[in-house]
């Protein structure tokens, strides 16, 4: 168990990625505060996520992980602070963002098929009123192929397994042809094989120079999957290269009272 938990900035990976400090920030957040009525959900967040990273946002339930993603996308009202995307304002960069919401946020009984959902990824570029045509559907088929669902294009979405539904959402984001992908729990409720396929895909994107930001829950798999880490619990506890950020002290500060559970699961020996 400890083997998988060891920080894993493996040699080839470190070589493939240039030094983060030299790269432009894909996400630059300054003093971001979001509140639902009187309760702050995010408090005075300062954050830089370099371009070309595969970043995990980790924190306990209610830490504001999803809210942070939604604030980046302009989906929740921001009380204070700013967020820059790919070096510009959100409005100017929207077309370069791909979004994967939580799978449970939509009704999968909706009368549509997989190809149609993936085609929605082309809507942003199409503009209003114009309908998706042959080029958009071809793009959608290509995206479905990338997630291994080429044979499921005509499948009614309620007839897909949870892992397939998750991959349909990923394919929709791929059809957006973005430079920054924002994903809310892309691994939630998928089987091991699907998880492997998804992480392969995300690492391919990263290796192509795209930036991928995921809310992630599993502390055991995180070190193997990601190269940049944001620890969040209403405040930004720590952010940086995965290996140097994934420490017992930081995790203790992030999870607070839940640490006994953590120590049992992680074991301080595995962490520097």
């Amino acid at each position: 168990m400890t083997a998988t938990l060891a920080p894993t900035p493996t040699a080839p990976l470190a070589a493939a990625v240039s030094r983060p400090d030299e790269r432009a920030a894909a996400v630059a957040v300054r003093g971001l505060t979001v509140a639902y009525r009187d309760t702050p959900v995010l408090w005075n967040i300062d954050l830089d996520i370099p371009a070309g990273t595969l970043t995990a946002i980790i924190g306990p339930n209610g830490a504001g992980k999803s809210t942070l993603l939604k604030a980046l996308l302009g989906l929740v009202p921001v009380a204070a602070g700013t967020a820059e995307i790919l070096g510009g304002s959100l409005a100017a960069r929207r077309r370069r963002i791909g979004y994967v919401p939580q799978r449970g946020s939509v009704d999968w009984q909706f009368p549509t098929n997989a190809l149609d959902v993936v085609t929605m990824g082309t809507y942003g570029r199409l503009g209003w009123i114009r309908r998706p045509g042959r080029a958009e559907r071809a793009r959608a088929r290509q995206s479905l192929e990338q997630v291994g669902l080429a044979d499921f294009a005509d499948r009614q979405i309620s007839q897909l397994s949870g892992g397939q539904q998750q991959r349909v959402f990923l394919a929709r984001a791929l059809a957006q042809d973005a430079d920054l992908y924002i994903m809310d729990e892309p691994f939630a409720g998928v089987d091991a094989q699907t998880e492997r396929a998804i992480i392969d895909l995300l690492q391919t994107l990263r290796n192509q120079g795209k930036t991928v930001v995921c809310v992630h829950h599993d502390l055991e798999t995180a070190p193997a999957y990601f190269d940049w880490l944001v620890l969040l619990n209403v405040r930004a506890i720590a952010a940086g290269p995965f290996a140097s950020t994934f420490t017992a002290d930081h995790l203790r500060a992030t999870y607070g009272g839940a640490l006994t559970l953590l120590r049992h699961r992680v074991g301080s020996g595995a962490l520097s």
């Binding site: 989906l75 929207r94 979004y99 946020s105 909706f110 959902v117 929605m120 009123i129 309908r131 924002i182």
Partner: peptide
């Protein structure tokens, strides 16, 4: 607005992320 209403009905958060 067939396309817009469909996305609004299926996934309003995604529609919002498109601006």
């Amino acid at each position: 607005f067939a396309k817009e209403f469909k996305l609004l009905a299926f996934d309003p958060a995604f529609a919002g992320s498109l601006g």
